[in-house]
Design a binder for these strands. Structure first.
Lengths: 225, 225
DNA sequence: CTTTATATAATAGTATTGCTATCATAATTA
DNA sequence: TAATTATGATAGCAATACTATTATATAAAG
């Protein structure tokens, strides 16, 4: 039996649904690969088109511009991540264990999930680390936010905030702590590999250390005093 | 008596020292203004040139490209910030008070410091919040890091890590906590204004709340248990 | 007081980026 | 069989990201 995973995406993110055609799927697949390879700044639709044997105009039929494509794959990632959180924390009632599970999921390298054929999740995770902040660090944040482009990210933040509150209902900053965990999971990994003196993990380069740091930080903050 | 502040910048950041000429200073002054106004993505040397009454080629004589200019002003900001930390924590021995001072400096709006005539620090702070991550989230990090472009940021991180250690010499993650404080001071403020559901400060929009959150986070983590 | 160096202005030019538009054709669907 | 739909092929255009050349004004050095 084969199980396949389909994620329902915000329709305003694309001009034509890339999940529904062969070319569309290749745009996503090789888009992820190319951004990973050369970085978002050097990435162009022309290069992507050459890479998948179509024309620039062909890619533009699916996405308004490369920034929209980045938002699309980022939103896809966080939706997928939320699904993982749900299945991985299923039947766990202890909020401490739940929270630890989430932190591990956030900071540890993912293996490619074969349920989504054209998405390499491991590569995607690396893109999220290096590029995802660029989706919202723009003059368009407010508009893009109104279109609900960041909904998957915000929903995840709300889910984590809820776990925090169920651990300690009196903790005053559940959402800020949630967004801190998410962002720092990405940033500390990026720093560890690229600017190691900004972390304490320079020698080992082990994502478990990031997990330990975040767990210590979070549970110190929310432990009932 | 007039006191003026000069910050010695890494020579590799520019082609010609902008501090030493009139045009150079205008490039910095109006560069900050224009990036603040239209965002780094829309910012071009052509627009800047028009804005200050020179030509595109004129600006290129000072900076290799706009990314270098962004690194320059970011490095300037962190150098200046480090100087502020030094004078503001002078004669304070208690590491707790020191750390609180640093957090306040990080998260609270700065007033324009008249010691630096051509730099509007308040505007610059807003650029740091929205654009500074883009200096290192590139495929060039490693190279740029080797050229010491991020030294001011890393030095500040080390200074904060030292204060953390003097508060609790046994704390295991002083550097990661330091970079977390710095990054989160910027991100929580950005979220508060632009994606408020990622924070707990949506209604008040008050930077003091960010300070409270960070203080709570930091001192919970480093308090001796 | 002349020579030299320095800073800028003015202009031109080129490759790449970031698009939009049009037309033809192949493959599906009604 | 007709009508969509998806793609391919080609063209074109304005903006971006530079580099190069020449002229001129000014300041510093001899």
């Amino acid at each position: 039996m084969e199980v396949q995973l389909q994620i329902k995406m915000n329709e305003k993110l694309f001009l034509r649904n890339p999940e529904q055609t062969e070319l569309g799927k290749r745009i996503i697949q090789y888009g992820i690969q190319l951004i990973h390879e050369i970085g978002f700044e050097s990435f162009t639709f022309k290069k992507l088109a050459e890479c998948i044997g179509t024309t620039e105009a062909g890619v533009y039929r699916y996405f308004e511009n490369k920034h929209r494509l980045l938002i699309y794959i980022t939103a896809w990632y966080w939706s997928w991540f939320q699904y993982r959180v749900k299945i991985e924390t299923k039947n766990i009632n202890d909020p401490e264990i739940k929270l630890k599970k989430v932190i591990t999921l956030l900071a540890k390298t993912v293996e490619d999930d074969n349920k989504t054929l054209h998405v390499n999740e491991s590569m995607l995770h690396q893109i999220i680390i290096a590029e995802a902040s660029k989706t919202y660090l723009t003059k368009n944040v407010t508009e893009d936010n109104k279109e609900l482009f960041f909904k998957p990210y915000k929903d995840l933040c709300a889910i984590i905030a809820d776990i925090i509150l169920s651990y300690n209902p009196k903790y005053k900053y559940p959402r800020s702590l949630a967004s801190t965990i998410i962002e720092m999971a990405q940033f500390q990994i990026f720093f560890m590999y690229n600017l190691p003196s900004l972390t304490d993990f320079s020698k080992t380069k082990n994502e478990s250390k990031v997990v330990s740091f975040l767990e210590d930080l979070v549970f110190s903050a929310i432990r009932k005093k």
